[in-house]
Computed example of a mutant assay.
Amino acid sequence: MGFIIRWVFALILLAATYNPTKWNYVSWSRANADTNLSIVVLLGLVLLVGYIVYLRATLRSIGIFGMVLILALVGTVLWVLFDQGLISLDDPSVNTWIAIFALSVVLAIGLSWSIVRRRLSGQADVDDIDE
């Protein structure tokens, strides 16, 4: 259940930033930067904090190589679904949602990996402390 919650929040973070509808931060900020600049900056910083939390945890737990590997795995699953005729890539908005989904899976796995590793191996991750 914990992984699902982390994935949903990653999906919300990515979709709130950009999606093919008009309900996203990028479109809204372009339309309202002249009249509501302070709110645009505030919401941009809130999104930035969310990205920092997810990316920092992901980079610390699986690293760049792990992120690329998981993205390759998700991409290969999508390729199989396309080859089997289960999904179509003709619609650009569907492609955007697929990319948002793939990136949210990478972020959710990155945020959850330390927990999975601890359960599988019995070893806890310890942060480095500078002294």
Results as ranks from 00 to 15, higher is better:
19 N>K: 06
7 W>P: 03
37 L>N: 01
33 A>S: 14
31 A>S: 11
20 P>R: 04
56 R>C: 11
72 A>R: 01
84 Q>A: 15
4 I>K: 11
126 V>R: 11
89 L>Q: 13
48 L>I: 03
121 S>Q: 03
88 S>F: 04
103 L>A: 15
95 N>R: 14
82 F>S: 15
36 N>L: 00
102 A>K: 04
92 P>Y: 01
8 V>E: 05
71 L>I: 06
8 V>N: 09
55 L>G: 04
115 I>F: 11
85 G>D: 06
118 R>F: 07
116 V>L: 15
44 G>D: 01
121 S>P: 01
115 I>Q: 12
2 G>Y: 11
82 F>K: 14
47 L>P: 01
90 D>A: 14
105 V>K: 09
38 S>L: 02
17 T>R: 07
64 I>F: 12
27 S>P: 00
89 L>E: 12
57 A>K: 13
111 L>N: 10
105 V>M: 11
14 L>M: 15
42 L>V: 00
124 A>K: 11
46 V>W: 00
109 I>P: 04
70 I>M: 06
6 R>A: 13
106 V>D: 02
51 Y>F: 14
58 T>P: 05
79 W>R: 10
112 S>F: 13
102 A>C: 06
25 Y>R: 02
83 D>M: 14
12 I>T: 06
53 V>I: 15
77 V>A: 15
77 V>C: 14
31 A>W: 08
46 V>C: 05
128 D>M: 10
52 I>N: 00
121 S>Y: 07
54 Y>W: 12
101 F>Y: 14
48 L>V: 05
49 V>T: 08
33 A>N: 09
44 G>P: 09
82 F>M: 12
129 I>P: 00
127 D>G: 05
100 I>C: 03
111 L>K: 08
124 A>W: 05
70 I>A: 06
48 L>T: 13
92 P>Q: 02
15 A>V: 11
110 G>I: 05
55 L>C: 07
7 W>E: 04
107 L>T: 03
121 S>L: 11
119 R>N: 12
101 F>C: 04
99 A>C: 09
31 A>C: 02
90 D>G: 13
82 F>G: 10
84 Q>Y: 12
56 R>P: 09
